[in-house]
Write a protein that binds this DNA or RNA. Structure first.
Lengths: 220, 220
DNA sequence: GGCCGTCTAGACACCCTTGTCCAGTCCCGC
DNA sequence: GCGGGACTGGACAAGGGTGTCTAGACGGCC
């Protein structure tokens, strides 16, 4: 997706719609909506600007597709993780927690960027609200499955989800070790149950395996 | 600040630096950084665009001043509320809670907008991080004063502050009554102590007195 | 009254961006 | 081999943004 031959004509590998979306998503996540210009995208793809208009009707069309993909990836991941089977509530929360730490499941920066951009657009706002409702509903159901009373499940789901969004909105820059040290306490805050050593160890192992990626800042 | 006579020359009331900042802050909070253009501001003030450059060196200079005022208002409010005297931890948390519900103390939309914008700028980012550290430190100290162990205070401060930021990042639109119904449960999550009826009643009264403002959407 | 400092309007140059148009190049099926 | 569809490059117009410059109006101070 990055190193395309810039030969004129379709001789070399041509860009696909997906390529444009990839670059746009990365740019949106790192530099915000304002930085997503057709020119910038085409330069990153090593391709002419007009190529863009073959794949997309307009810049707005790109953002529509962007929102679609954001929803499909980020929201789906959360829902799937919340619905995963687990013996204890702590284990369930850890499942959701995997979204926060594994870039393959969830892109925090993208989520924040989409949120910041969608605030201006009414149609995007509606979609965003729907996504948030879907996410919290899934987490709420997760708590309910583990026997929490309806409104208790609701508050716990909100605390969990809202706090995580806030964490990314703050965009704290602290080493993974510092974050992990607090994990057991956070878990207990969410579940109301003291996590077992075995559960904490599993979470720590998973986090360490994936979070290294987020400790680097790409200069793009 | 809104109805300025547009008479040529300084004959009528002239705009002040504060006027520009007021309008810019309002616009930033409601439409995001991209919407804050010199032209838009001047139109809202009923004044020529070039007037802007008498008050500010450049558009960037405006944003510097904006950040300054945002910090002075929003951050100061939180710190002051966190440092206010209170008999119980619940009461202390309620004090901070006043920021979230009283527009005179804290502007959530502005906070979110500044956050979204500052992400792109390095200097603004540094300032933002400093503000967040100051806020959480004040809340952490608040918990510590009520006898919480150091790292317990730290986690509780983070849960409280991070969750609130997340709440505004989500920008949930729900009636004040629904929010208030959950307030006691949230309080207990933050403090670990069941709030007394009297404390809940005081919080509810305060919230009802101020939150009506936020139930309206201004069309600007 | 004269003058200076404050404040404003309008014109201008310049840049960046979007969206369109057209000529042209390549792959692929026939 | 060839013709059409997929795909790209460069030129173009139009709009909106910033920042500068100049001419000038007004209030207050001397």
């Amino acid at each position: 997706m990055t190193a395309l031959a810039a030969a004129p004509g379709g001789g070399a590998r041509a860009t696909t719609r997906e390529d444009w979306l990839d670059v746009a998503l990365a740019l949106l996540a790192r530099r915000g909506a304002g930085a997503v210009s057709v020119l910038t995208l085409s330069e990153r793809l090593g391709v002419s600007r007009s190529s863009f208009y073959w794949h997309f009707r307009s810049r707005e069309g790109l953002f529509d597709a962007l929102l679609e993909r954001w929803d499909a990836r980020n929201t789906r991941s959360i829902v799937r993780q919340a619905e995963a089977e687990a013996a204890t509530i702590t284990e369930s929360v850890c499942n959701v927690f995997r979204c926060w730490v594994n870039p393959a499941l969830f892109s925090p920066r993208l989520d924040v960027a989409v949120r910041a951009w969608a605030r201006a657009s009414d149609t995007a706002r509606a979609r965003l609200d729907a996504a948030d409702r879907e996410r919290t509903a899934a987490i709420e159901a997760m708590f309910a499955r583990h026997g929490f009373a309806p409104d208790d499940a609701m508050v716990r789901a909100r605390v969990l989800y809202t706090m995580q969004i806030g964490y990314y909105a703050l965009d704290m820059r602290e080493p993974i070790a510092a974050r992990l040290a607090l994990a057991p306490r956070y878990l207990e805050t969410f579940t109301g149950v003291k996590p077992r050593d075995q559960e904490v160890a599993a979470l720590r192992a998973y986090a360490l395996a994936h979070a290294a990626v987020q400790d680097f800042e790409d200069p793009s």
